[in-house]
Design a protein around this nucleic acid. Structure first.
Lengths: 208, 208
DNA sequence: TCGTGTATTTACCAAATGGTAAAAAACACG
DNA sequence: CGTGTTTTTTACCATTTGGTAAATACACGA
């Protein structure tokens, strides 16, 4: 695609540009994931990134552009674990691995999980088109795969869509409601979560 | 406690006061549940309630007081379904009824569910003390009950705390992530959810 | 070392925000 | 009806907010 390059002759970003954009996005992820789009302020992002407000607007044309950039990045990360689910794999194992990957993401990327939760809570004003275009067909596809496995007796029959909802909710809960868990939890939460969820979904899906 | 009354000689609120406070709280629930505390504005609440901004501040001394009032009201509603769980009841049925009540709440009070989710997402700055004082001991108590049931062989053994987390997350998900479900869901979501969750937790907890 | 494009700061701005004071209007009630 | 109280409006205010323009400092290749 040399055409694209010649049509938009933007030079490759300098080292400084790359570093500062990363700083800004990192600080913005903190702020947006905690307060949502409207509750977040450029001043907060400015403080946390160490860059002055006009300097931030030198790298991103508006507050919303930072948010959109974060959401775009998020979409890829978000769909990845589901994409990896292999229709040729061993059914139960594939599902349990998916649960594991989602739980790992909750632990390793809690800010991203909360950014997503905030966006959906607000009615997905910026995310809805993405979800319709990317998530919906993916879910349709993978639910069909799961349905197939069930029809073949390789998994106990249940509603594939709601199975997916329950995987999403139980795993993301550990990131999104962390503040609550910190109050009422006593154990090594993620280690226990791992074996509990394994147990939960094995019981549901094991045939025989 | 006539002392209290004589010490704070506030008269009983008039009809107008009652009606307007309700209007404000209803509008505020809309706005806070969608945008969180910081993302919500008095002007929005003003528009939605039909009362002018200074008029709102005649009934509530500050934006934060409206929010706090909502959260206080919420706490009672929120704990109720768990309180109702009866240690003398039939174990599996008690749990399934709890799931049912939580799911009913998600369907009937989605704004309240999202208000709660927003507060926790933001780190529970206003709710944390309430949770520690009211939720924590209640959870401890009910988890002990469940543990007892398991020890007696009336329920299959599993981690009671994480069982509770999974009940919370799966049920609240239908309210909090409604925007997402509207995009990818096809069925009569709540009817399917009901039977799916029943199935999920029965499989997990049924002894034998 | 110099010049040129890149990066950052300084100094702003208009609009929105939470909130106040006081006057005006509506109301309750003897 | 009149009078004291409650409710609502009008007119503000200081601060914060997202954003801009222009001047300045910096990096870096020739």
């Amino acid at each position: 695609m040399t055409i694209t390059q010649s049509m938009t002759p933007e030079k490759k970003p300098s080292r400084i540009q790359l570093r500062n954009r990363l700083r800004i996005l990192d600080a913005a992820l903190d702020v947006f994931s905690q307060h949502g789009f409207r509750g977040a302020t450029l001043d907060q992002i400015s403080r946390e990134s160490g860059l002055s407000k006009p300097n931030i607007l030198y790298y991103f044309s508006a507050k919303e552009e930072i948010h959109i950039t974060l959401l775009n990045q998020l979409m890829e990360t978000w769909l990845d674990p589901l994409i990896e689910m292999d229709s040729n794999g061993e059914p139960l194992e594939e599902i349990l691995n998916y649960v594991q990957r989602k739980l790992d993401m909750a632990r390793e990327l809690p800010r991203e999980s909360r950014l997503f939760a905030n966006e959906i809570l607000q009615g997905a004003p910026r995310m809805a088109p993405h979800l319709k275009r990317d998530l919906l067909p993916l879910v349709d596809e993978k639910c069909a795969v799961i349905q197939n496995w069930m029809d073949q007796g390789k998994l106990a029959p249940t509603n594939p869509r709601h199975l997916m909802y329950s995987i999403w909710s139980t795993t993301q809960h550990y990131a999104d409601f962390e503040a609550q868990l910190n109050i009422i939890s006593t154990d090594n939460t993620y280690a226990e979560a791992q074996s509990y969820l394994r147990h939960l979904f094995t019981n549901l899906l094991n045939p025989t």
